[in-house]
Design a protein around this nucleic acid. Structure first.
Lengths: 174, 174
DNA sequence: TATTGTTATACTCTATAACTATA
DNA sequence: TATAGTTATAGAGTATAACAATA
């Protein structure tokens, strides 16, 4: 560790950096601030939910997420469909599914129509567990958002829909 | 792996689950949908940025995040301040800082006012590197958001500010 | 040839808790 | 006693690539 407290060179360098403008276009700066603020909101809420799901249910958000996807699909989902929905690679889905299957919460079912793939479903135990998690999760989210006005919720929901659609387009194009 | 394709019991169980209503309050369901949509938007954008920062700059989002916090603080930041800003524990900040220091991008500076702590600053090399990253990052975000209207951006920015403030309150209280 | 899923690997992030040095 | 930061540990996510089975 170097003691630079008496030196001024680094201060000078840093001042230049801080004062100079990186972006000539004002809109681009707006984009960044918008994104950073959204990320900040998400991180804050996600950290809180991760912490609670861990301490109260001894599980993780990705496992809960996978179970939730299955809970809303009576016919189950293929690994590749889970991969797409959860936005992670196939290998990760294999890992999370392995853990949940070991705990008896999901089952892999042979797909006779295409023997390369299998269908994942919640077991009876998994259904019960997921319901409890879902209810607790909903309560946590509600308590976090309780001071956010109904009108704001409606507007935010719509705007995020638009945002998702427009970013989606630009992701597909790349 | 069990072959359940001919059995109907699981289908029946799943149908009940899917059709039953977990939440009697409509607002709570709204909360969840709002949260899931926001999380979805964030994950999508974050995955894209993570992928690009990795392939084009051979680094990670947390490292970039730490450097960005420093770039906007001419006098540097303490580890504990970085911990609070990045919403992760002290131990993690130590790890990320170690990596960045090893690469010569940041330095730990002894804090004479309080010898328990140290001040972290970008080095000259770190400043140059962070500038490049920040510019590329801004361009990526702008290209992702380019189809999102200015009016929508303004409204979304404001709403997210309100959201952050209200969730903050409920986090502090818990 | 392409697709589905698995396996193996290496790395990073994460929370937790015990620890030290200092306040 | 409390605080700042480090260390150690265990566990989880991630990308990548090679692979087998099947389409």
């Amino acid at each position: 560790m170097t003691d630079y407290t008496e030196l001024t060179t680094i201060d000078n360098e840093l001042s230049e950096t801080t004062l100079s403008s990186f972006n000539s276009e004002e809109n681009q700066t707006d984009d960044i601030h918008l994104w950073l603020r959204m990320l900040d909101c998400c991180t804050q809420i996600e950290n809180e939910l991760r912490s609670r799901i861990r301490s109260e249910f001894k599980t993780t958000l990705p496992r809960f997420d996978l179970m939730s996807k299955l809970a809303h699909e009576p016919n189950g989902l293929k690994m590749s469909e889970l991969s797409r929905l959860m936005m992670v690679t196939n290998g990760n889905i294999t890992g999370i599914t392995d853990q949940l299957e070991k705990d008896g919460l999901v089952v892999r079912i042979k797909n006779r129509a295409d023997r390369r793939s299998s269908i994942i479903r919640l077991t009876k135990k998994g259904i019960t567990y997921q319901k409890k998690l879902e209810q607790a999760h909903a309560n946590w989210v509600s308590s976090l958002l309780k001071d956010f006005t109904p009108k704001s919720r409606t507007t935010l929901f719509k705007l995020l829909g638009d945002l998702k659609q427009s970013t989606n387009t630009n992701l597909v194009m790349s």
